[in-house]
Simulated scan of single mutants.
Amino acid sequence: MVVQVGKLKGPFRGFNNRQTRFTFSNGTTWRQDQPKYFYFYAANPRARVIYQENGTYSLEIDGTDETVQVIPEV
């Protein structure tokens, strides 16, 4: 189930580590929650956060086939 769709704020430089944060243009922020490195540059890409059946969330970025597990930042 898709829980958020929109554009990321600023440049996207891929997935780096568990401290990497992804902020949507509406201000909602998600933090990477799995060790994964993937470099891809895009300016303000469209992105989706998807709720998985196992209770986790994953982030998808337009233009890539890669996803990463994320958690909401409070």
Rank of each mutant, 00 (worst) to 15 (best):
Q19P: 04
T29N: 06
Y57D: 05
Q34C: 12
W30N: 07
P35S: 13
Q19A: 12
Q32K: 02
A42N: 01
A47Y: 00
A42R: 00
Y41G: 01
R46M: 08
V49C: 00
R46E: 07
S25Y: 08
Y37F: 13
T20D: 10
E53G: 12
Y37R: 13
N26F: 09
A47G: 03
A47M: 02
A47P: 02
S58I: 15
G27V: 10
I50R: 09
W30Q: 05
A42C: 01
S58G: 05
G27S: 10
F40M: 04
F40V: 02
N16D: 10
Q52P: 05
T20I: 04
N54K: 13
R46T: 04
W30S: 06
T56P: 04
S58K: 15
T29F: 07
S58P: 02
E53T: 12
S58Q: 13
T29Q: 07
L59G: 00
F38N: 06
N17T: 04
R48M: 10
V49D: 00
F22K: 01
Y57K: 05
T28V: 13
F38D: 04
R21P: 05
T23E: 14
T23Q: 11
Q32T: 01
W30R: 07
R48L: 09
L59N: 00
F22C: 01
Y37K: 10
Q19T: 08
N44Q: 12
Q32Y: 01
